[in-house]
Simulated assay, not measured.
Amino acid sequence: MAKKYPKEFKEYVSKLIVIDGKKMVDICNELKLPYDTVQKWVSSYKKRKQDAEKAKQNQLLTASEYKELYEAELLKRLEIEEENAILKKAMHIFTQEK
């Protein structure tokens, strides 16, 4: 029966290899872990990091997206200012009729 390891332990071992640059063989020998198991943990860890990086990149706006967003906001602002000007004129007219 395969031994179950906590998620935190798998993450720790993967970080030792990926971030700290430890050799997988050394870690396996030191912690008495099967090489193929650690290899799966490291692959999974790298994939999660890659997916997180892609998600982060997708949140960033390109210059054209930013420009579109800026122009849309500017248009809304101009419409609101125009509505306010109309309302001010209407208020002025209604207050003058007394």
Rank of each mutant, 00 (worst) to 15 (best):
K15I: 05
Q57E: 10
K98S: 06
E11K: 14
T37D: 04
F9W: 12
M1L: 05
K3R: 15
K98E: 05
K89D: 13
E30L: 14
D20Q: 15
A55V: 00
H92C: 05
L69N: 09
P6R: 12
G21D: 06
S14W: 13
L69V: 05
L78G: 00
E8W: 13
L16F: 07
K88S: 04
L33K: 07
K88L: 08
S44T: 13
K4F: 11
P6S: 13
L61F: 08
E65W: 01
R77H: 08
C28V: 05
I27Y: 06
D51S: 12
K40A: 10
Y70R: 06
K32E: 14
E71R: 02
L75F: 10
T95R: 08
E73V: 06
P6Q: 11
N58M: 07
K46H: 04
A52E: 15
E30K: 12
S43D: 11
N58F: 02
W41R: 06
K54P: 00
L60W: 03
L61E: 01
K15D: 09
P34V: 03
E82P: 00
E65I: 00
T95Q: 08
K47L: 14
K88Q: 11
V25G: 01
T62V: 03
E81W: 00
K46A: 06
A55R: 04
Y5N: 03
D51P: 01
T95Y: 05
M91I: 09
L74N: 07
I80C: 02
M24P: 01
D26E: 14
C28D: 02
A55K: 09
Q39L: 14
K15G: 05
Y12Q: 11
Y5V: 03
V25N: 08
V42N: 04
K4Q: 15
F9G: 00
V42C: 06
E81F: 02
S64Q: 10
T37S: 13
I17L: 08
E11S: 15
S64C: 01
K46E: 12
K67D: 07
R77M: 10
L16M: 15
L16V: 03
V13D: 01
Y45E: 01
Q59N: 14
E65Q: 15
A90D: 04
E30F: 10
L61V: 01
L87S: 02
A52M: 15
T37I: 12
T62C: 03
E81L: 12
